[in-house]
Design a protein around this nucleic acid. Structure first.
Lengths: 140, 140
DNA sequence: TTCATTTTTGTAATCATTTTAAATAATTCA
DNA sequence: TGAATTATTTAAAATGATTACAAAAATGAA
């Protein structure tokens, strides 16, 4: 996709085939995928893709602010191509990660983003845990 | 300490020597230590302590709500004996984790803790990243 | 083209965490 | 008490995510 190329370029990222495919994947899969999931999904498209490239690229995306690196899952890092301020929820039964867009959040984030005391804040991550609707209903 | 024994007992945790030592450590070291740090610190007191016991115990503490398991550090899990609602900040230069007690936070947490839509929320973790005062000053 | 730089790749190494099974300690109740 | 059951601790091995490294491939500039 041409717009992905421009999107990367405008953020100071040279748009290689691998990078575009990875960015496209993140933008079209709002599932907060793990490295493993992205790797498995892209292998048919990029048969020579290596895990190292994935790790390097996702780190680059995170540094350049075109992706979020999420620590909500204690077992593995997850990634999000949506960089608008929002929170996340992980279901402790099925492991799925959901987005939470609350009106108060962007406000809260911008409020704290500048400074708390003498600390220089650059990012905020808000993570909820519990049981999602699907799993809650199965329990009955 | 006798009060640690009661504290554990009142939370449904049988107070073994190992558990009391670990809880004591968490209550007296507000540094959000890693498993490795706790292990190294306690080895002189409990020469036979094993890492497995540490992992088991910290999991138990987290389940019984006498400790927080923090995912703020992407490399390793950190623990906090302070279970009052508060946020954390990790300095990306030195790695230290600081507590952030903001008036708005307990409110925010209790607000969201019950339910968001159809999700059943049981815990919230708010993590800031940036540069701490010490490291900020060193940079000049 | 040729040279230099960037990006990608595969392999091996590292390190936190989990699994497993045995050893030890504590508890129960006959 | 003391044998039997249960809970806890331990050490060693296995797992799995991530990083380090060095070579190969691709890209860009002169």
């Amino acid at each position: 996709m041409e717009q992905t190329k421009d999107y990367l370029s405008s953020h100071g990222i040279r748009p290689s085939a691998q990078r575009m495919a990875i960015m496209d994947y993140l933008l079209s899969h709002k599932t907060h995928p793990t490295v493993e999931e992205i790797y498995t999904a892209l292998l048919p498209l990029l048969p020579t893709l290596s895990k190292t490239t994935l790790y390097n690229t996702l780190k680059l995306f995170s540094d350049k602010k075109v992706a979020l690196m999420l620590n909500i899952d204690e077992h593995t890092t997850r990634f999000d191509g949506d960089v608008k301020p929002h929170a996340h929820f992980q279901c402790q039964v099925c492991g799925r990660v959901y987005d939470i867009f609350q009106e108060e959040l962007p406000e809260l984030v911008s409020l704290y983003k500048q400074q708390i005391g003498k600390l220089l804040i650059s990012s905020v991550e808000i993570s909820y845990k519990g049981v999602c609707e699907m799993c809650k209903n199965k329990k009955d």
